[in-house]
Amino acid sequence: MPRRHDIDALRALAFALLILYHCAMLYVADWDWHLKSTHLSEALQLPMLAVNRWRMDLIFLISGLSVHFLLRGGQLGRFVAQRSWRLLLPLSFGCLVVVPIQPYAQGVANGLVEPGFVDFLLRYYRFQPWPEGAFDGWQYGFTWNHLWYLAYLWVYTVVFAALLPLFRHRAGRALHARLVALRGPALWILPALPLALATCLLQPLFEETGDLIHDWYRHAIYFTVFAYGYWLGNDAGLWAELARLRRRSLALALALLAVYLALVIVLPEQIPDALQYAVWTLRNLYLWCAIVAILGWARACLDRPFAWLPWANEAVYPWYVLHQSLTVLIAYWILPLRFGPVLEPAIVVAGTVAGCWLLHAGIRRVAWLRPCFGLKAGPRQAAGAAAQAAQAAQAA
């Protein structure tokens, strides 16, 4: 089956947006983050909010799509083992080697960690609690910060593998057939309803803390869109419908966003429960319509072998692992220098991109580093492994 270039391109673009989003977190007013610039903008809140409502949902849906393609004709046990290796090794390596600069910079900025990165690491690797509020995750002694996605994705992958017999059962296949048969307004509305229901039932009970054990609201949302991605798969009819509806989906998403942002602006923080449920339902309708529009436009415009796509496919994983630590490190260095509201963010973005580019260029050439950043064996390593396998087969 031909490779779906649109999905590859969409994955790369989704993570590129994530990098820009995290850079912007330095500057959006009233939103907590690891470090904050003195050049804060309230106007930045609205575009950030518009993106925030679907950015991670889109990434988890693309992850579900990837599972669909990886499972075709493969053994389930081997799939789980390979995915565990490609998720848990970068997560462990990233938490120990890449992420620590973030809690260090945050702790120093908060005045609760003494300057001196080596001394910090010696204390950090004891995995004991830090002074309250030193950095995100101070209670546990360490943090995975932006790498939480890898932990969540691994859990969803294992749970999905355990539930796969149900998905492949008669009832699961019937539900799948109903989903891929959705057309027109039903495609905009029906998949959003489980998301809205989960929000109304669970968001009042569980804060979005990034705590894997207690994050049941986000689990319900992200696992649902992960399953949608698997079910969406490569169904030609549904993808054709997504492309056909792309203009109307975009218009509807923008209309829903306008109403939602207007309500966010005019409504007080405390509102009646019935009104709150209506706002949450509207938010989830916007979330899903935005994803439908993105998928439709990607199918119509991105399904071609762009020259940059092979490089981007490889770069996505290491850039994701590296980017936030680079952003925080650069900000830690330059925020005290007061470069101004234009030059400072330009340095942060350019430095993050340049750092990811240079480090990825080095990582891809070091055999033992490649799996630590989610990369498969390079051509030389793959050829060597194939030769060893052939020799072993001949000896047997």
Rank of each mutant, 00 (worst) to 15 (best):
Leu163Gln: 06
Trp154Ala: 00
Cys200Asp: 15
Leu17Met: 14
Arg248Gly: 10
Glu269Val: 09
Trp54Phe: 14
Arg304Asp: 09
Trp319Cys: 03
Gln203Lys: 15
Ala387Glu: 04
Trp130Pro: 02
Gln203Met: 14
Asp6Val: 05
Leu197Asn: 08
Thr224Pro: 05
Arg55Ser: 05
Asp215Gly: 06
Val118Pro: 01
Ala14Met: 09
Leu175Phe: 11
Trp239His: 13
Tyr125Gln: 10
Val155Asn: 02
Ser37Asn: 10
Trp144Val: 09
Asp30Leu: 11
Thr157Gly: 01
Val225Arg: 10
Phe93Leu: 04
Leu359Glu: 00
Arg178Met: 09
Glu314Phe: 01
Phe339Gly: 15
Met48His: 10
His176Gln: 15
Pro103Cys: 04
Cys95Phe: 02
Ile363Lys: 01
Arg4Met: 13
Leu285Tyr: 03
Tyr260Val: 03
Lys376Leu: 10
Phe69Thr: 01
Pro115Ser: 03
Ala290Trp: 07
Tyr222Ile: 06
Ala298Val: 01
Leu88Ala: 05
Glu207Gln: 14
Ala24His: 07
Gln75Lys: 13
Arg72Pro: 03
Asp136Pro: 00
Thr352His: 00
Leu20Thr: 00
Arg218Ser: 12
Pro115Arg: 03
Ala109Trp: 02
Ala315Pro: 11
Leu65Val: 02
Pro379Asp: 15
Arg78Asn: 11
Tyr152Thr: 14
Asp273Glu: 14
Ala24Ser: 14
Phe206Leu: 14
Ile347Tyr: 04
Thr224Met: 09
Glu132Thr: 07
Val28Trp: 08
Leu205Phe: 08
Asp57Gly: 14
Gln75His: 11
Tyr277Asp: 11
Tyr152Ile: 07
Ala81Pro: 04
Leu197Val: 14
Ala395Leu: 09
Gly137Trp: 07
Gly172Trp: 03
Leu335Ile: 13
Ala81Gln: 15
Leu20Cys: 07
Gly210Lys: 13
His219Phe: 05
Leu58Val: 05
Ala161Gly: 08
Arg299Ile: 00
Cys200Thr: 11
Leu252Glu: 08
Ala361Trp: 03
Ile221Gln: 15
Thr281Gly: 13
Ala300Tyr: 05
Trp138Lys: 02
Leu187Thr: 09
Met1Asn: 13
Glu241Ile: 01
Ala395Ser: 11
Gln391Ile: 06
Ala196Glu: 10
Tyr277Gly: 06
Trp31Thr: 06
Arg4Gly: 05
His68Thr: 02
Ala350Asp: 00
Gly94Trp: 00
Asn234Glu: 15
Met56Tyr: 04
Ala196His: 08
Val266Arg: 14
Leu164Ile: 02
Phe223Ser: 08
Ala386Ser: 05
Gly340Val: 04
Val51Ala: 14
Tyr140Ser: 15
Phe160Thr: 03
Ala14Gln: 10
Asp136His: 12
Ala251Leu: 13
Pro103Trp: 12
Tyr332Ser: 08
Gly74Arg: 15
Thr209Trp: 05
Leu337Asp: 04
Gln203Phe: 10
Phe60Cys: 00
Asn284Ile: 02
Tyr104Met: 01
Leu267Thr: 07
Asp303Trp: 04
Glu269Met: 06
